[in-house]
Design a protein around this nucleic acid. Sequence first.
RNA 1: GGGUUGUUAGCUCAGCUGGUAGAGCACCGCACUUUUAAUGCGAUGGUCGAGCGUUCGAAUCGCUCACGACCCA
Length: 498
Amino acid sequence: MSENQQNEQVQIKQRREKLNALREETIAFPTDFRRDVIASELLANYGDKTKEELEQEPIRVKLAGRLMTRRIMGKASFAHIQDMSGKIQLYVTRDTLPEGFYNSQFKKWDIGDIIGTEGILFKTKVGELSVRIDAIRLLTKALRPLPEKFHGIADQEIKYRQRYLDLIMSEESRKTFVIRSQIVSYIRQFLTERQFMEVETPMMQTIPGGATAKPFETHHNALDMGLYLRVAPELYLKRLVVGGFERVFEVNRNFRNEGLSSRHNPEFTMLEFYQAYAEYDDLMDLTEEMLRGIAINIYDSTQITYQGEVYDFGQSFDRMTVVESILHFNPELSADHLATREAAVKVAEELTIPIKDGYGLGKVQIEIFEKTVEHRLMNPTFITAYPVEVSPLARRNDDDPHVTDRFEFFVGGREIANGFTELNDAEDQAARFRNQVAEKEAGDDEAMHYDADYITALEHGMPPTAGEGIGIDRLVMLFTDAPSIRDVLLFPHMRPKT
RNA sequence: GGGUUGUUAGCUCAGCUGGUAGAGCACCGCACUUUUAAUGCGAUGGUCGAGCGUUCGAAUCGCUCACGACCCA
């Protein structure tokens, strides 16, 4: 403790001394201040008024916020405070405050302190809407200095580890998370308007299902049983469809025990929704409509720019099958090259894709797709007809039993959504689970478990249903022009600091 | 996991082929009643990410480790 104090930097020491002095003479952390307006409201309502208009009819305002800048010029000072909506300038003079307050109090406050203040709106010489202060109080003393005001925080690590500092300092960063919030509420509204009901299903599951991914394991002490953090809510949402909630959705966290990258965080947010009496192409239409709506809602335009490329959600999106897309991006290949396992393996080997013995034709095709197509799908595109063996929960296509009625949606070379007509044939589903279990036993630790309870639910009859998952983080990246998933997560996973 | 690269004052950075550390902002003092990266003058502040090694001497060279960033798998 005393060692800590000794090691404290000079600036923190100075601020601590100021706080101690404050404690001596008054309540150091008062809570009774109330504001009557925020900065953005003032700028919106009075920003266009002239100097004269503001003088004619004086407008009195009470504001609170963090002191961000201060320019002391003898007996008068300019300062900016920042609240949740933005910044506004204060004009503070010695002679409008109580005797001695300006020199003995105001000038001793620090950048970063939180203050409450009151005064009259006016315009400065250069026309900036400001508040002429006649009452001002320190509400919260900040003991640590803020980052340098001009460059801000350049160290990405600090932006992530101390997100509160990033939010204080970076308008852009605040905007990213505001847009994230707007996207999620737009989606909620979009689905609710279409008779979807929002539900919450277990995050801790006895059998982790709904996706092929490695789960996190945990333990329930009282019941002395292992539990998994969910990798997807899918099987629970479909149980609800069996139960008669014919349109449901959930926006919530999934957990996957995999590596970290600019596109992966161990916990991430997924929208899943299920609509009875619909097929996968109904959901493709719905997805187009939703993305178009988000773009218009946020940017008032169907065009968005991501990392220098413009994407247009205004026109209907391209649609092609997995095989068509491989042929499209590999013009040297013909359909025959992908028609048999033997031929496809040869193609994969030429592409230096590692192929395991257990892979069937479909899996080999998907490996080729991921290597040669995925990252090139720039414009909004639906890819359809995914092989059965990589789609254990999707309905088999009636004309081609090797593929499913499934799509994935790509934009900017990234997978954003995955949807399909649900497999509601309990016997087919049981067989698919058995295949997954065989793959698990053969060493694939991402393969699914056999979920007998889910099969029982299907045996009670699930209406024909289509379902879809949309990765919210990646969607937000797209709409905020963020290069890394960490930029759209308030608190991305970081290695513990040593 | 591999490659490239970074870690120096509270923040943003400079510091050459090795000779014991520098700027701007912040902070402190003085001046200043329309500034907005305010300004002018002055002062304070660093076991140079950690450890080991080479050397008379290491922020600088080498090795190991920690934590990041970017690219690849």
